[in-house]
């Protein structure tokens, strides 16, 4: 009998598999498809202080082995998430969930995180300083060690639950930003968010995406994500949630060997709504195939 359990800060997860923010809504709609209590946790749709419609359409472009999205943080706002979305999730999901928070100023991150921190169902705060799809926000905080550290300190000052900072790969040196977050008090790191990309339509000769560029995700980015998790693992002591192109139980194991304590599944949920279920169900068999008895033992094993 193999064990898929992992300890992520104060949370005991039945398995390390977590749907990534923005690919699973607020979870409850997937409960029509399978029992979502099999998941390790759920990273909820990125939430801001105010409701947002997001960017104009088209927001989606297909790529070889991946896709670009430019949704632009469409969400109903933190108050509606707490009063309307979380109660719907509570009807079908009994484990602690991960709130994913974005903002356009330090004050907004602070306001949103302190509200999410008080919600009983929330077990971890994932602070998104890496959204490539909104102007003057999101990613601009995640591209300098100083700004990322400032957000981390401000959020930590008003919260009690573990704070994970979600990092962007669109930087020269992700390790320096990871270390700045750790020094500022982050309890963990999530990486990577999408890579800035674009496509041009040959018929119109214009960008496919209305916002011109967007976040590239999918299996194509897995090697980049894996490399960054590997590098960051060597530089920090806090746990890492690894993500980026993970689409199979084998990928989950590879990501954990690189240094991830838990693993998020993103774009794969969009091509297969049963992706997380299939990965969780196949994980024990794949572990046995590679003589892994306890998943927790392999974290960082490739170093």
């Amino acid at each position: 009998m193999v064990s898929t359990k992992v300890k992520l800060c104060s949370l005991e997860l039945d398995n390390p598999v977590i749907p990534a923010s923005g690919t699973f809504g607020f979870g409850y709609e997937f409960a029509e498809l399978y029992d979502i209590n099999i998941l390790g946790s759920i990273s909820l749709k990125g939430t801001t202080a105010q409701p947002r419609f997001g960017n104009p359409t088209p927001r989606i472009a297909e790529c070889p082995a991946g896709m670009i999205n430019s949704v632009g943080l469409q969400n109903p706002g933190i108050d509606a998430v707490i009063s309307q979305e979380l109660p719907k999730l509570a009807e079908c999901f009994s484990k602690p969930a991960i709130a994913n928070i974005s903002g356009f100023s330090v004050e907004e991150y602070v306001e949103c995180c302190s509200k999410a921190d008080k919600a009983e169902q929330i077990g971890i705060l994932e602070v998104n300083v890496s959204c490539p799809n909104v102007h003057n926000g999101g990613m601009s905080f995640g591209t300098s060690p100083e700004a990322a550290a400032e957000i981390t300190r401000a959020v930590k000052a008003v919260t009690t639950k573990p704070v994970f900072i979600k990092l962007t790969p669109n930087v020269t040196d992700i390790v320096s930003i990871a270390k700045a977050c750790e020094e500022a008090g982050a309890d963990g790191l999530s990486l990577i968010n999408t890579m800035l990309g674009m496509r041009i339509n040959l018929k119109t000769k214009k960008p496919v995406i209305a916002n011109k560029m967007g976040g590239f995700s999918g299996s194509a980015i897995f090697p980049v994500a894996l490399r960054m998790v590997y590098q960051v693992y060597e530089a920090v002591k806090i746990p890492i949630i690894g993500m980026g192109g993970v689409s199979s139980a084998q990928d989950v194991i590879e990501m954990m060997l690189a240094g991830a304590t838990a693993v998020q599944i993103g774009a794969q949920n969009l091509v297969d709504p049963y992706a997380c279920k299939n990965i969780i169900e196949s994980l024990p068999g794949v572990m046995q195939e590679y003589s892994i008895n306890n998943l927790e033992d392999i974290i960082g094993g490739a170093h």
Partner: peptide, 27 residues
């Protein structure tokens, strides 16, 4: 019609505004 990501309501790729609120073309 809209360019869709998932087609089942998860990604918000095909949202539009309506008088009854934001809707996903796919779901």
């Amino acid at each position: 019609e809209e360019r869709m990501g998932c087609g089942f309501g998860a990604c918000m790729g095909c949202s539009c505004k309506t008088k009854y609120g934001n809707k996903r073309i796919c779901k």
